[in-house]
Nucleic acid binder design. Structure first.
Lengths: 346, 346
DNA sequence: TAAAGATATGTAAGCGCTTACAAAACTGGA
DNA sequence: TCCAGTTTTGTAAGCGCTTACATATCTTTA
């Protein structure tokens, strides 16, 4: 009664009349102890309200059952819903999630990786492939089990879970070109230190080049992934000539920002200019006009990343890489250009 | 050289020619060791690439420098951006974040609270005030340091950080009433087990009652906080008579769902019916018409919650409760009703 | 019914760190 | 120079758990 500190294994052992070892077994590997003993143990645990002490467990077993995720930001619905799914799968496996954000800063990423490891993460989930050598070295030297998500290359290593950003943008751009657009602009994410943003740009650029027929990228502006910056970039692009007839955006947030600014400037979408986003976050189908975009399997990606990481933590070598597929979502913000060249009248 | 496992304190001690105690001190309380010794120690740590073992540290000090957050979902931008801020403040203090979600299920909440505690959280951040006695008991008996966020009552306890949901809705409803609306409907969140949703309903309801002049809540529908359900609820409400002239929604996601469905059904907003949301997530100002809503200081709330929790963990008793303020944001989705009764022609 | 094998439980040695306490090495003033 | 006071360092006892190994208990089968 006067006992202040939490009950320990020993307390439970005393009450149940068994050894601490049996209790540990009952907890971690139940069928190693006989039913009657298990019942006694469970009763004692219940009576005392016992919960295992984390430090003791971690120290003795050298495992925390905790994994870390280091993502650019939770403020983008994209990552938020992926993390949600990631966390759910972990939770089912009794593993907890340590979460840290980088704000798209690679030094911050290394700092957070170190922090999570110092806080006992058994493994990590990271976003994207672009990181400085110092970070790679750290991961390598410490032999930190990790998976890399949100990107996938044809030559992806077994720790990748994601989709091919370049290919997805290539395909989306083809749709735009086939509608008759020839003057195309892009509002990219900041490509420096962000392989996804760079890959998306490359995809758009390559599709335009390969298409020929006078198609050209008339302008590309890097913008941080925030509504206002999408708007600013839009305004910049539209204030110069030649104006594009379609703008492809690095993600839906940028596209939504562009759309909002278009409305404010009295520029009609898609009448004056078509807009295409990327990610298909909830917002994309709610705005007017609805945003043409590329659907990314966010939930599935989170889940698969969790599965792969759990598999690696339990020593399995296979299981990866996992490629997921994207789908172009044509919607009202994308229409043929006003003076469509290749669009014969019916 | 053949050593596989990570270097321990003892390894460092041997190399530096001091005792393990000194090293521990150098690490945790540097000015307790003389400069020359500290230098030797730092050199040895560097040489060995030593990092403290988490389990050992946690076991011996009974602290993990980790706090947990248990939120309904990350999929709502509301919580995502609050968490983002929460995490940033923690990170600056060298504290890491364990994150778990409940899906608005209170049993799941208790399970996750237990899981986070079992994973060594020093304290918790929880959302809202409504939870079963069993959960309260658990928090109480374990004396778990925690803060409760996203809600605030006039009689709030020192662990609350948030705003008054009821008052915020009361004020918003007054705006609606003053514009001339008399038949008002509400699409609430699911009130069962969610005090914020219940408070919001109460606020709307009370404002209508207090206003008199024939104002009435013609219908209230509970809906899960998801776009589709907002749409479904909207359709249900608008299919019955008398139709409301304004619908107040429990949050922006529901309102956006309603708006989308309105468009699909050919119902004009605000011509046929006005719509009001809650939270002011990014989406609210991007949709057309822009959504009238209540701005909630999400970032500030996350920050304050982190500060208060850190303060409590370091033994300070004061610091709370913290009340934050909301602001009604009139926007295009709210206009006087078509046949405004109290709106004299100019 | 006894012996061999399988199953269940107990014993006790750490895991790597912190920290109370003891011991040693410094101060400076008489 | 010596001593009391102060600062720095070392010693060693845990923190609560897991797990290899030893021991005890139950099955089988000949």
């Amino acid at each position: 009664m006067t006992k202040i500190s939490a009950p320990t294994l020993e307390d439970v052992a005393r009450l149940a009349g068994v050894s601490t070892a049996s209790i540990s077994r009952a907890l971690n590997d139940p069928d190693k102890v006989a039913k009657p003993t298990r019942d006694k143990i469970e009763a004692a645990i219940e009576a005392l309200g016992y919960t295992p002490n984390f430090g003791g467990r971690a120290l003795a077993s050298n495992r925390t059952n905790t994994v870390g995720a280091v993502v650019p930001t939770m403020a983008n619905a994209m990552f938020a819903s992926g993390l949600q799914a990631f966390q759910e799968v972990l939770s089912e496996a009794g593993v907890n999630l340590l979460l840290a954000t980088t704000g798209y800063d690679s030094e911050q990423e290394l700092r957070q990786i170190k922090a999570l490891m110092a806080h006992g993460a058994d493994g990590l989930m990271l976003i994207g492939d672009a990181r400085p050598q110092s970070t790679r070295d750290f991961l390598e030297k410490r032999r930190i089990p990790h998976v890399i998500s949100w990107c996938f290359q044809p030559d992806a290593s077994p720790i990748h879970v994601g989709f091919d950003n370049r290919a997805a943008c290539y395909a989306a751009t083809q749709h735009v070109l086939e509608l008759g657009h020839r003057r195309i602009a892009m509002i990219c994410g900041v490509r420096q230190g962000n392989d996804r943003a760079a890959d998306r740009f490359d995809g758009v650029s390559a599709a335009i080049d390969d298409f020929g027929q006078g198609a050209a990228m008339v302008r590309a502006v890097d913008a941080q992934y925030r509504l206002e910056f999408g708007g600013d970039a839009f305004e910049k692009i539209m204030s110069q000539s030649p104006r594009p007839t379609a703008i492809i955006c690095g993600n839906d947030v940028l596209a939504a920002g562009a759309l909002k600014r278009a409305r404010e400037l009295g520029i009609d979408v898609p009448g004056d200019v078509s807009l295409v986003g990327f990610d298909d976050i909830g917002l994309a189908s709610v705005v007017t006009p609805a945003l043409a975009t590329v659907r990314v399997p966010q939930i599935e990606m989170g889940r698969e990343a969790a599965r792969l990481l759990l598999a690696r933590l339990s020593g399995e070598e296979g299981g990866g890489p996992v490629e997921l597929h994207t789908e172009f979502m044509p919607r009202a913000s994308l229409a043929p250009p006003a003076q469509a060249v290749d669009q014969p009248e019916p």
